[in-house]
Write a protein that binds this DNA or RNA. Structure first.
Lengths: 346, 346
DNA sequence: GTGAAAGCGCTAACAA
DNA sequence: TTGTTAGCGCTTTCAC
């Protein structure tokens, strides 16, 4: 009993009006007498009519869907999803923000990849998280003239009037914030653990760290481990640090799971956190709150980043000016036990 | 310089063929001579032609997009996203699985809600996580004849040949698994902490618990707290339990954050976990691994659930028979320190 | 093996 | 205020 779903024409016929009138009453365009509207709505209701979003999309050349390109999905190993908290908070907030803009949110992996779903291209615009150096997706979107917004700058592209619009993740300020915090808490041999993806977060943090180390006159110690290794990556990084020089008394690890691994290895080597070594993670997660000691972090506030990204993209789609966040800073330091040596331990 | 994007007609003209031929070479329908195909593809490449997914969607009456209705999004407070790990793993895996089926995955909140984005209805089908008693969305989808799959049964709907197709979350087996585990580890005053959403997980667990308690001849102690309260909910639950009878020596808390709150309060009251009280969480999360003691859990394996849901929905969309998972069980017990009294503590 | 033509359901000139 | 009509870009009979 699969009866064809009613079209605008069925409604028009039943209401005794033209399709234009039906269209107008639903889109709000043109002018339709209130009484006519009533009749149309009644007819639509009787028939169970819902405008066909796809047909509208074809006609308006706009579907009302934006795509979120999450690089984490490209691993195609969901059980290895890196930084679940960041991903979940970002995706969740993006979905909610899209909703508020009347847009749907599609979750896609890199559409330039081999397994791209054709439907990905149906989106009106793209949000690209963590663009990397020479990002092929950014190149594709640019050349195809498809609107997009990146979260974080595209590394290697000088900021200019026509560099891709992006949401500022403030990696420079936040790196300094974390390092200064470690310094102020007394650390003097501060090491940095980054991931290996060539995105702004990793690259800028490393650069700022180098500069900061020179300024503070400390010897930089830096280790890069793949994000996907999770705790194990942190363990390796810590092992490397311990075996290749004087033990650090402060570690800034950009990924939350790396930080967990670092703390584990430090502890196993008899170093107490925070008494002997201070640790800060560069990304917040529930697991950092649950760990003992609890681990300090930079909370990137993915919710806010996502909101801004969606708003910026929606504005672009409507040719509205981009919202200006002025000096509304995003990202903050969350001090927990791992970097507060004086504080009472439970 | 916004030059109109090339259409199938442009390609046809440039290749000196009809639009039919172009369509055929791209869809694989009909038969096109290899040499002609070459010419068509060359022309398409030169022009930078990509088939318009929306136009295809209109024509085929199928967009290639499915929607994931995550109830967690309905709170519209992404910072309060409950069970981030479950959400992230499910959404991530669903996106990946969709990709493998050539489908896009749209993240939407309940489209029957007031703020529904019209685009949500563009989807070919729906995955509804955690349907609740008298679910309005299920009702809407059913009456509209839109294909959907639920994750977990719709409570209150007797299983029958035409009850909505669902992915089995095995709440009955898993509840028994957790309770038996606590029992085997020596607990005799085992309490249950559930959420308040009226979904299968909460309802079935409670029912099975009651039955199990009768069978084991123990006095049931059950507390229900809203999922959204997170740790605080767990704290309240534990406080209630401690103040309303003999202290439990085993707690099964369905939500990971509730479990964390429970452990915190128990500890504050001088009860040692696992020595005095065993604790198991009904949902796995990174934070449970990071906590001290580490907390045992039922890992629902959202990745697998998501994969099955997507496959089932895709099969339905193609009128293929539903995949049968036989006795391939999903969901498992992860034993950690909180329920292993003998094990060495770090 | 290839092409002409009729729509899919809707919107937006334009006409009345 | 309402109606007629020409498409949006594509797929798909059905001829040739």
């Amino acid at each position: 009993m699969t009866t064809r779903r009613p079209t605008i024409r069925d409604v028009a016929r039943r209401a005794g009006v033209s399709v234009t009138t039906v269209s107008h009453t639903f889109t709000g365009n043109g002018t339709v007498a209130p009484t006519t509207q009533q009749r149309v709505r009644a007819a639509a209701h009787d028939l169970g009519y819902r405008p066909d979003v796809i047909a509208q999309g074809l006609r308006r050349n706009r579907l009302g869907v934006i795509a979120l390109v999450a690089r984490q999905l490209d691993a195609l190993r969901p059980d290895l999803l890196v930084d679940v908290d960041y991903f979940a908070r970002f995706a969740g907030a993006a979905a909610v923000a899209s909703l508020a803009e009347g847009l749907g949110l599609m979750l896609v992996s890199d559409p330039t990849g081999p397994r791209a779903a054709g439907a990905a291209l149906a989106s009106d615009g793209f949000i690209v998280t963590e663009p990397v150096t020479d990002d092929p997706l950014v190149a594709m979107l640019t050349s195809a003239g498809i609107p997009f917004v990146t979260v974080g700058e595209v590394p290697g592209v000088p900021i200019g009037p026509d560099s891709p619009p992006h949401v500022d993740i403030e990696s420079g300020r936040l790196t300094t914030l974390a390092l200064d915090h470690l310094w102020d808490a007394g650390a003097r041999r501060i090491a940095l653990v980054t991931g290996t993806d060539r995105n702004e977060w990793n690259l800028r943090s490393a650069a700022v760290y180098q500069r900061w180390a020179r300024y503070r006159r400390i010897t930089p110690a830096m280790v890069h481990v793949p994000e996907q290794l999770d705790d194990e990556g942190g363990r390796r990084a810590a092992t490397t640090l311990l075996s290749s020089g004087p033990a650090p008394d402060g570690v800034y690890a950009l990924t939350s799971n790396h930080a967990l691994g670092v703390v584990a290895v430090l502890t196993e080597h008899g170093l107490r956190v925070p008494d002997d070594v201070l640790v800060v993670a560069g990304s917040d997660a529930e697991s950092l709150r649950a760990a003992r000691p609890t681990i300090s972090s930079i909370d990137l506030q993915p919710d806010e980043l996502a909101r801004r990204a969606v708003e910026a993209l929606a504005a672009r789609l409507d040719d509205r000016p981009l919202p200006d966040h002025g000096d509304q800073r995003v990202g903050r330091l969350v001090v927990r036990q791992s970097s507060a040596p004086g504080a009472p331990q439970p």
